[in-house]
Nucleic acid binder design. Structure first.
Lengths: 364, 364
DNA sequence: CTGAAAGCGCTTACAG
DNA sequence: CTGAAAGCGCTTACAG
């Protein structure tokens, strides 16, 4: 190895470090300090920082040693200015449940830990006509490193077109394949919903209903599709009058459940498209003087924190939201480094059985 | 007025704007473009941007018109580099309930709307010995404009000392007076707790218990103090065996409630120090086969989203968390502008009566 | 493999 | 009231 330490080199390093130590006390070091101490140009230091291969190993080691000694980190603002790209990662979301956002945030922060990237919050409201204009302004001013788009923002092609135009990296999280492996994280919502169907079938339910999310959400579609498929496996089907459409919110879930309860044929089991609606369904059942799970079994989707805080605790389909956030952040960093994965990273949900589901009541 | 538009000046402006329009098409404008078109130095443009009074009104108007026409906004990275201060506002929090964080975030974003400031998330875990070191690294690298510190992080004097050393602005949100009016937002938790006490007293309860937050949180102390004071108003008192200490979490609230239920004298009403613990109390009551509010009335604190999603809906003390977040953001911006408020901005909670409280059961 | 020069888009002293 | 110069701490062509 040409770059094994020689006593010559060690002396040089020691000398440099002594100088560095003497210097170290006066505030934070800059690239100029490193260059001066290493007796190289700052361009060479820059090359080392940016992992350029065009540096003699011996030089690289010396510079790296000094950088480590002085605890030097390049100034993010200066780099951003020169690179025309900041170290901010934006999370763009349109009013998902509070539980979902918090989990997603934690995951992204997990993925960003020990890097110099920062997570910036960019909530939007697509009912606001110029919400993408605001986001464009943010992008043009702050030149974010990349954006993470959870559902349902991830499904918005106008947004993605705007991001392409402005040359911003992004990662989309969605229940269907919308983009290349470098740009998306996929969840197999249909499979999770099928598990819910199998669970309810196994408990002997036949009068099974579904509270469906809004038509405009791909996940709502996927979840219903998977649920129907799962029921079909045991010869069951979901009749149209057993489907109540709602809006992924607590209130809409409550109303949808009331419609189901007071319909001609009351279901003994209900699969709600997310935990928020399932929580609304709980209230509707309680208000009607019925019991969970004795009279009606309920299954949710997402396994947000509220699921475990209800009584009885909610049987739900767990989507590893936090892990997905982490994967999204890592994918964004990999993308910038030019590492394109061969195939789409995907997450499969799994059912978490808790107290809200039981055997179908007899004689129903 | 010396700066009323003269035809002379209007012609000059029109000419400049024509030039600007011709230019406008080529990417984003910089301070140099503005200076060139206005035929002034970029320093003068900088003065206009920074609202320096040392600019002739006529010059100022011309420059402002051109800036407006070109939709120019100074580059945040460049300003940050020159000013040694970025446009990031950090929210530092140590695992409060997910509901609390989300509300706080929304509020801060409300306060930052239409500014170029960005909200950056900095969760910490004080069980981690070097969590302040990590935060210091963030501060030294990213030079945030300021930090917002909700409880209980706001009470940490080590943190505040570190912030002072590093010359970072901050706003503390707390239930007691910890800092100057420019640096804090206060909540009158004791008053809210007193309202809870009055409410339960008015319903005829005498066997009243309290699930208290952790001793290390000022808010826990304040809430108990206020509750005791409120009870005293109607000649009631809180006996020591009617106080169960918990940790502001769902699980700890559940366990605390179980202790109260199976104690010698079972309370007919319980005031929990926050909604998370109140939610745990719900589960304990249900598990014990008791009913809310028929057997036991429960009052929470915070009015987080979960309160309205429980059945029966939780009577709780509403802290306007979102508004507090907004106020904190505004205070931070005002601080930087040198506007020191005369007195501490404070928020008074108020009780929100819902279904979880009722008349004390007879014959108890 | 390495460096001197110019530049990213602003601001801060310093003059006048 | 205004400007020319230098600087914030990095990187990108361009040479060699």
């Amino acid at each position: 190895m040409t770059d094994s330490p020689t006593s010559d080199q060690e002396a040089e390093l020691a000398e440099a470090l002594r100088e560095a130590a003497a210097f170290g006390l006066t505030g934070r070091a800059t690239i100029n300090d490193i260059a001066r101490i290493a007796k190289v140009s700052k361009k060479t230091v820059s090359r080392v920082i940016n992992e350029s291969p065009l540096v003699k190993p011996r030089t690289r080691h010396l510079v790296k040693a000094i950088i480590a000694k002085l605890c030097f980190t390049p100034d993010p603002q200066a780099r951003a200015l020169a690179l025309r790209r900041s170290f901010l990662i934006g999370l763009v979301y349109d009013n998902p449940g509070p539980q979902y956002v918090v989990n997603m945030q934690r995951g992204i922060l997990d993925g960003l830990e020990d890097t110099d990237f920062q997570l910036v919050l960019r909530p939007v409201s697509r009912s606001d006509a110029n919400c993408w204009d605001r986001l464009r302004t943010f992008i043009q001013h702050h030149k974010p490193f990349g954006l993470i788009l959870p559902p349902s923002v991830s499904e918005d092609e106008d947004l993605v077109a705007m991001l392409r135009e402005n040359d911003v990296d992004y990662v989309r999280i969605a229940s269907v394949e919308l983009d290349t492996p470098a740009r998306m994280i996929r969840t197999h919502d249909a499979e999770g919903a099928a598990q819910a169907a199998r669970h309810l079938s196994a408990l002997g339910h036949t009068d099974i209903a579904h509270i469906k999310g809004p038509e405009t959400f791909r996940s709502a579609h996927e979840r219903r599709r998977g649920f129907v498929r799962g029921l079909a496996e045991s010869g069951r089907s979901l009749s149209p009058d057993m489907v109540a459409e709602a809006g992924y919110t607590f209130e809409s879930g409550l109303l949808a459940m009331e419609r189901l309860i007071y319909a001609e044929r009351r279901p003994t089991a209900v699969f709600a498209g997310n935990d928020e609606m399932a929580t609304g369904a709980y209230v509707a059942v309680c208000k009607a003087g019925l019991r969970i799970p004795e009279d009606i079994s309920i299954v949710g989707f997402d396994d947000t924190p509220i699921a475990g805080r209800l009584w009885p605790a909610l049987t739900t389909v767990r989507l590893p939201i936090r892990e997905m956030g982490q994967a999204a952040a890592q994918l964004l960093l990999a993308q910038a480094a030019g590492n394109e994965p061969a195939e789409i990273k995907s997450f499969s949900p799994e059912i978490v059985v808790r107290g809200s589901t039981a055997q179908a009541p007899r004689g129903n």
